[in-house]
Design a protein around this nucleic acid. Sequence first.
RNA 1: GUGGGUAUAGCGUAGUUGGUUAACGCGUUAGAUUGUGGUUCUAAAGACCGUCGGUUCGAGUCCGACUAUCCACCCCA
Length: 440
Amino acid sequence: MAKLIQRPKGTQDVIPSTAYKWHTVEHIVSDAAARFGFKEIRTPVFEDTGLYVRSVGDTSDVVTKEMYTVSSKGDATFTLRPEGTAGAVRAMLENGVMNEGFPQKIYYIMACYRHEKPQAGRLREFHQFGIEMFGTQSPYADAEIILLAKSVLDDCGLKNIELNLNSIGCPECRAKYHAALKEYFASKKDELCDTCLERLDKNPMRILDCKSPICSKIAEGAPKILDYLCEDCANHFESLKKILTSYGIEYKINPKIVRGLDYYTRTVFEFVSTDIGAQGTVCGGGRYDGLVSELGGQPTPALGFGMGLERLILTMEKQGCDFIAPKTCDIYLVSMGADAQAKCAALAASLREEGYSAEFDLVGRGLKPQMRYADKIGAKFVCVLGSSELETGNVKIKNMRTGEQTDATLAKFNESFEALYINEVLAIDNDLAGDIASLL
RNA sequence: GUGGGUAUAGCGUAGUUGGUUAACGCGUUAGAUUGUGGUUCUAAAGACCGUCGGUUCGAGUCCGACUAUCCACCCCA
């Protein structure tokens, strides 16, 4: 036997037995997006490296050490997308979609790539549900995307997801705040850890985040961004808080939320779960009013979020949430002998044309193993075909849930099966049907 | 990039102070009198015990290195 090749570090296979979990969240997510009027966009897995350097920021960790960059045959270098926003904005501009009127609302479900050391809830290839909205400054828009994220989490059945909220202001108020921060931390220079000393120059807000006990102690006494917001930013934040409260959405003001992607302005938020380990941020996002012009478009206010699908599924599993059960076989056709197998194949084909999931034996098993197999794959009905059925044209269709057998003929097989099937589905979905009826 | 844990069949585990053909459960395949699944019973297949090296008469068991994986830091979804 040749040696097995393993999957690359930090990647995950979705095998058939777990694919339904992905179908569930993909369905929930795109359904919620549609209810809020967001349209899907799909962009390339790789982009010109410069796109990320300009948008995500050349001091960010993502750009400085986590990108998968390849040089192409020409002179350009390409990078596997580390996040979705930059590519989405680029595509909106390049295709002139921004000119179609505001607000523009888009969503995507995509794989992203970052070269990090994997751990619980953190992969090198991970999947993100993201939404972006362009062309509105209104705090209602900020509230809208938070509400959308909340709807998704609720639809997933999740509990105990905390919303952390902050405002990091616009470039003007942030500059003042940075100056104040630098002054404060510079006075405690001797006590700060090495990494924080570096941060002092480049991005002093990061010190607020430091896990070192000494630094975080110092950070407690540091100036707060919220005290430095300009009038417009402060008003915006106040309005947002009022709207959220009127929606009944609970939130916690957390001045430590800073966001590692440089393009954020004003509103930043995170939905955090405590159930999945250290990487608890299920959804993170905010406003980035400067990004569109940074990427060469007309100055356009914008905002959005990214939601980690692996983390979402992880949290759902941890909390025992329901996933949509995978579709199982409607009817399994058991065959005995070559002639019967040929007939089963033909029957399966005609049932499939009518939209049913029909299967028959493909490996040459005996009657009993075929019955076992039918049971294992969750077949709702089974029909056995042998020489006597082929001769007489009379068959029995067995309901696997009740064990009940019903007479039918090969000539009118599909009609008989359809009647049985409708009955059975009604019986199984009785409760569910009630739920749906009450919703409508 | 820096720490710590783990590594035995497809999956989950046991393997006693180093001692013969590495055990069990689930799963898989098949059988339990003539053509009907789930429960039960029986049997079979399936592992160079992560890799390489060392200690020893003898290593799944002890030591070392490497690799993989998990968790944490960092950062983020």
